[in-house]
Structure formats: C-alpha cells, structure tokens
Design a binder for these strands. Structure first.
Lengths: 135, 135
DNA sequence: GCAGATCGTTGGCGTCGCCAACGGTTCTGT
DNA sequence: ACAGAACCGTTGGCGACGCCAACGATCTGC
C-alpha cells in the first residue's frame, strides 16, 4: 500500500525539516522561488499547489526569518512580489541536503537500479494525475 | 519524490473514505478487528500504529454508528474489549471495495507487471522500516 | 504491601489541506 | 464610461492525522 510508505516518508521528511527548523510549506515556497524566480503569492500558490491562505502564512514566517522579501508590485497594486534572499537560498540548500540524507535513509534497502525503477514508476503516476514537476 | 505520490494517494483515499462516511482511523480499527479478532484498545493502538487517545475517539465514533462494541474485560478491569459487529463487518467490506476502486484509479497508468514491481518495492521499504503488514 | 507498569480518558499542540468571506484592485463587455 | 466579473492578499475557520502529557483506576512483580 502506497499509503503505508507515505507514512514513513512523511515521518522521515518531517524529521529532517523540523531538525532544520522549517516546515514543508517553507521548503516548497523556497524551492519554487529558487526555480522560477520571484512571483506573486497567488502564483506561488499555483506552483506549490498550496492554498492562497497558506501561502500568506508561509511567506510571513519566511519573511520574519529573513529568507524572503515582500514588495508591492508597482504594475499591479493587488500583487505582492515575493523574492528569495541570499539567506533564503542558503536555507534552501540546507533543507535540500537534509532531504537528501533523509531520502538515502528511506531508500536504504533498495539497490541503485531499484531506486531508479521506483522513481520512474512514481513519476508515471504523478504525471498521469496532473502532478507538477517539483524536485 | 515519494511525497508527491503520497499526496495524490492520500487525496484519493480520503475521497473514497469520506464518500463512504468514514475516516482512515475507522478503517484501520475495523480492519485490525476483522483480521485479529476482538482486542483491548491499547492492543488496537499497537496493531494500527495509532495513539491510544486516537483509538478512544475512533472506537467511540464506531460504537455510535453500531460498527463496534465496547465491553468491560472481566479478567482485567482496566481493559475494554472491543468487538466488531455484523454491521461493522459490512461497513469494512464497503470500505474495502471503495479502496479497491480508488487503487485502480491511482494505478491506472501502470501495467499489471509494473504494479507488481511497485508493490514489491514499496513492500521492501515498509518491511525494512519496521512496517506492519496491513492489507 | 508497595513500587512500577499498564489501561482508558481528557486535553492539548503542530502540520497539512481546504473553504468562505472581506475589501481592494484590475480587467471585460457593453 | 461604467457595471460586473475576475483576481489578489488577508483573516478566520474546519477536519484529518500524528503525537505528547497527565490523571485516576487497575494490575503486576518483588
């Protein structure tokens, strides 16, 4: 059952994140900013498949930690342009490293080719169900 | 990323459950009761990998719906013996059917052999990380 | 008999995902 | 030009899930 592995995966990932003082939402926002550049909050919501209200909370927290900057968009006064800072990039790298080690731990019992197969299969599932290509 | 598929899986499963008027906790408890027979709540918690406090809530709800019965254990007055009822077994069958169709939908893009491979790989992961063999 | 473990229960915390409503802004059709 | 639709950020709320702390009652080992 996929749900079963999901549980373990979740647990491991959560561990890695909390160890780095962050949450899944933070990582997603930072990763989206790094990959696609500055964006409005609504745009971030679409990229991260997150609700607008959750984006507000995440961006606020990231802003308080200095990982992100909010600035009014002069071209459209409805929007806030969110930009990742230098510190934000560094934090993202930390989280990426944490995720890597977590992934190693999770996939420990699998050989390299098995991992490849698994990733391919899961990729197929995600793509078929309209998944966004996030890391 | 496993987390990605986890999200979709979760969503699908949740859909199927709420459509049947149940939650994941309910299913797990019913399945454990059907598979291993009546048990105390603490025992259920171990089987389902759930917290005792969550077992309390789940059993209470299942009891209100008539899917389960609480009875004092005469041999140990601390324990409540939880027993699945006829209606509970039927409900479990409904949930199983719902899960099956959900799984079909989720695994739609995969061939039969691919599904087999995926299940095998995930099984390896679960087993390695001390997973309990649930369904 | 007494200390420690176990059981059910209550209450709380945090993450994740979602929805409704608002006031402000921009875009659209006419 | 102007009304209505659509969009944006924000606030507040809800439910599912996972976990922890504490309590009183009960059972166990020594």
């Amino acid at each position: 059952m996929i749900s079963q592995t999901a549980v373990h995966s979740r647990r491991f990932v959560a561990e890695g994140f909390t160890a780095a003082g962050a949450r899944g939402y933070h990582y997603r926002v930072l990763a989206a900013l790094e990959e696609f550049g500055p964006a409005s909050q609504a745009e971030l919501g679409r990229r991260c498949r997150m609700d607008r209200s959750d984006i507000v909370a995440a961006v606020t927290e990231l802003e308080q930690k200095g990982f992100v900057e909010r600035s009014a968009d002069p071209a459209d006064r409805r929007r806030n342009t969110v930009t990742i800072t230098r510190a934000g990039t560094q934090q993202l790298q930390r989280l990426d490293r944490a995720l890597d080690s977590v992934q190693d731990e999770l996939l420990a019992p699998l050989s390299a080719t098995e991992r490849q197969t698994l990733v391919a299969l899961l990729g197929k599932l995600i793509e078929h169900h309209g998944g966004a290509p996030t890391s």
